[in-house]
Amino acid sequence: MSQETTHIVSYKTQIFVLLALLVLTAISVAITRIEMGPFNTAAALLIASIKASIVLAWFMHLKFESRFFTVMVAAVFILFLLVILVTFFDYSYR
């Protein structure tokens, strides 16, 4: 297609992204030491989602693609969020 362009992410950005992922991994381990009941799972899922979003945005170049793809990926995220909410709706009231 005519609008196809190659975007090269700088090493500096790549390293920042890697560091962000490592920090978030450390946080997701550390947070398990705090007793928050069912919110421990929610926190783990939230951190994992942030990490996935970072990977999608920079490593998988979603940030540099057309807005259409971002909307599609966001729709998928919302769908899975709803699926997870409905599943945990059962567990919360058991």
Binding site: L79, L82, V86, F89, D90, Y91, S92, Y93
Partner: peptide, 21 residues
């Protein structure tokens, strides 16, 4: 159709609110 799967599990032991939903 994504959000109706629980009707396969009405007698499995889900919470009441999940059943109604």
């Amino acid at each position: 159709g994504y959000f109706v799967w629980g009707h396969h599990m009405f007698t499995s032991g889900m919470s009441g609110r999940a059943l109604y939903t």
